[in-house]
Write a protein that binds this DNA or RNA. Structure first.
Length: 462
RNA sequence: GGCGGUGUACCCAAAUGGCUAAGGGAGCGGUCUGCAAAACCGCGAUUUGCCGGUUCGAUUCCGGCCGCCGCCUCCA
């Protein structure tokens, strides 16, 4: 039984999608005004884990992640750089997809861009207008929160408790009530605009998620993900817009991912602890180690990204990879059945059961390490049969369909292989000085040699 | 101020009203190895922030205190 913690109900709930075999997921995606930072990627890796796990459980997935390519930040930064909004956002959108591939984050089914769905948003606003949930002020359209009773259910914000005007930018647009939010912004000088029934202007931020999620997934989604910071006001507003328009429940399970901090502190540009993926790769971390680290802490727990934890993640990934390589290269000559599979099977079952419990990754990983550990012993004791090997590899691949950290070995260049052979000759003739010299040379070329009973094994150093 | 989270060994991190408080990393000792690497074996919390309560029994439930963190700013 799959259970998720539903932020809406603030408790663990049994998961069952609307359609028996299909899960509809919407994840709040990036605003493409800069490179995404590791905090962003934590959130995307979380939704990746979610979809991979559900796929593994046999569901078909319809997953939408929006690309916000028009908002204050994109507009202003594009202006500063003297680029068109389109040109500007295209660059960062491409960078975003590039980073997703680097982190081995699966492509989702739909990546709708806000600027390509202006009509859908306007239609949705129109619908809200017909239900008298909006008003127009100085050419902009606002959502009237006082007309939507359920407002605040998700975030638990007490509307009466919000101080009027205190932290709200109230001189830019004129709202009846500071809690109201803008659906459509009237054109401002020098900003991009679309000509619509509401005149020239551009969409507010929240409306795109409502419009695009409902366009691709229908009025009710199974799962909506995002960072905790989005609960208020963004997700609250999405609910208001969507349910206001359709009268149907918008989202059945809200899953929110906790934030990431760096060396115990909130990431911020001023503290110099603000990292993009590129920054981390430059520091020498491998993509898979970063992926593992972001994956290995439960999504509702704040993740402290530190030098130490990155090193630990690197070691853990290497351990799993070494194991995979070892099993793959195994040439078992044992024919006797030692019940290996029966002894290993419980670990896989456990892995699965732990993830069913709100994606509880830590004990799931513990289970994987127990599996590795026990198998390594079987290997030493030579209890593995050819069939067992197949089972172990199959199990590992199934697990890695969820984790996404294993790599197939890169082929070793001829010149390195030649050196390795030369070293083997030297070792045979006990010329260890020469052997060590060649090993150093191979390391310089970026490969490491491990001597095994079956001969030297060469691996690329990451 | 309002709302929420969290405090488990050197670091990261599970779990449970009572059986030895998982797992990873780092460390130490050993096996294997020409050396190394990988792998294997062994070692670490008399104890789960502090104080009190409930209970035969609490790290787990309740109350208080302290610490840390987040949201309340178009920040995932």
């Amino acid at each position: 039984m799959i259970k998720f913690y539903n932020s809406l109900k603030k408790k663990l709930e049994k998961f069952s999608p609307i359609e028996e075999k299909r899960v509809k997921i919407y994840s709040c995606g990036p605003t493409v005004y800069d490179y995404a930072h590791i905090g962003n990627f934590r959130s995307y890796i979380f939704s990746d884990l979610l979809r991979r796990f559900l796929k593994y459980k046999g569901y078909k997935i319809s997953h939408v992640m929006n690309i916000t390519d028009v908002d204050d930040k994109t507009i202003h930064k594009a202006q500063r750089e003297g680029k068109s909004l389109q040109q500007f956002t295209k660059e960062y959108t491409e960078a975003f997809f590039h980073d997703l591939r680097t982190l081995n984050i699966e492509e989702v089914e739909f990546y709708p861009r806000a600027t390509e769905h202006i009509d859908d948003m306007v239609r949705l606003i129109k619908k809200l207008e017909r239900k008298e949930l909006t008003y127009i002020s100085e050419g902009s359209v606002y959502f009237n929160i006082s007309r939507f009773r359920k407002y605040g259910n998700l975030s638990g914000v007490d509307l009466g408790g919000m101080k009027k005007g205190s932290r709200v930018d109230h001189d830019e647009y004129k709202k009846d009530d500071i809690k109201d939010f803008v659906l459509w912004k009237a054109k401002k000088q020098g900003e991009p605009f679309w000509n619509t029934v509401y005149g020239e202007g551009r969409p507010g931020w929240h409306i795109e998620c409502s419009a695009m999620s409902m366009k691709y997934l229908g009025p009710t989604l199974d799962i909506h993900t995002g960072g905790v910071d989005l609960i208020f006001p963004h997700h609250e507003n999405e609910i208001a817009q969507s349910e206001g328009a359709t009268g149907k429940p918008f989202v059945r399970y809200w899953l929110h991912c906790a934030h990431l901090i760096v060396e115990g502190e909130k990431m911020s540009k001023s503290k110099n602890n603000f990292f993009t993926l590129r920054d981390l790769l430059k520091k020498g971390y491998t993509p898979r180690a970063i992926r593992y680290l972001l994956l290995s802490v439960h999504y509702r727990k704040q993740l402290n990204f530190t030098e130490k934890s990155a090193k630990a993640a690197t070691a853990a990934v290497l351990k799993i990879q070494n194991f995979y390589d070892t099993v793959k290269e195994l040439r078992p000559d044992n024919k006797k059945n030692h019940g290996v599979q029966n002894k290993l099977r419980p670990f896989l079952i456990n892995f699965d059961r732990e993830l069913e419990n709100d994606l509880n990754i830590s004990p799931a990983l513990a289970s994987l390490f127990d599996f590795i550990h026990m198998t390594n012993r079987f290997i030493i004791e030579q209890k593995i049969t050819e069939k067992d090997k197949g089972f172990i590899l199959k199990t590992l691949k199934r697990i890695d369909n969820i984790l996404g950290i294993l790599q197939e070995k890169e082929s070793v260049p001829e010149e390195v292989l030649a050196l390795v052979n030369e070293r083997e000759e030297a070792r045979k003739s006990k010329d260890f000085k020469k052997a060590d010299r060649i090993r150093d040379e191979v390391i310089k070329k970026g490969f490491v040699i491990e001597d095994t009973k079956e001969g030297a094994r060469v691996k690329k150093i990451e």
